[in-house]
Design a binder for these strands. Structure first.
Length: 118
DNA sequence: AATGTGACATACC
DNA sequence: TGGTATGCCACAT
């Protein structure tokens, strides 16, 4: 387990979420809940989703397609311009998607709590 | 100022 | 097992 330290923690929740998502490695995925837990608000997963919706307008690019729900389903696919876009972005990173679900989700899951420190 | 609404996750019947 | 309620946070109304 490699620990990555980020230089500064942002003031607002959305920015924190965006920062975490930027650390998700290419070819890996994480979940709304994992991010919420990591940021100290275990039941704010819903808000994390809202932050993703907001991510399109973020100053720095956010790989929002690497965030799925806790079962590995692409519940956010409707927000990528066209429905298949999210899947395409993932498969471009060798993450296979079938029936809106990430294959081998368990082994591809990346937990920010195990890789980052606040 | 108060209310409603989400790309979720859990707890509790 | 499956439906309903609720926490959470920012934003629009």
């Amino acid at each position: 387990m490699k620990t990555i330290n980020w230089s500064e923690r942002n003031a607002d929740f959305f920015a924190d979420v965006h920062e975490v998502v930027r650390h998700v490695p290419r070819g890996r995925v994480t979940t709304y809940g994992a991010i919420a837990r990591f940021l100290g608000s275990p039941s704010a997963s819903r808000t994390v989703g809202w932050a993703m919706n907001n991510a399109h307008g973020a100053k720095i690019w956010v790989p929002a397609h690497r965030v799925v729900n806790r079962n590995g389903y692409l519940t956010g696919k409707a927000h990528f311009g066209y429905p298949e876009r999210m899947k395409e972005l993932l498969e471009a990173e060798d993450v296979t998607v079938r029936n809106d679900r990430v294959l081998h989700f368990d082994s591809l899951f990346w937990d920010p709590s195990e890789a980052l420190t606040l």
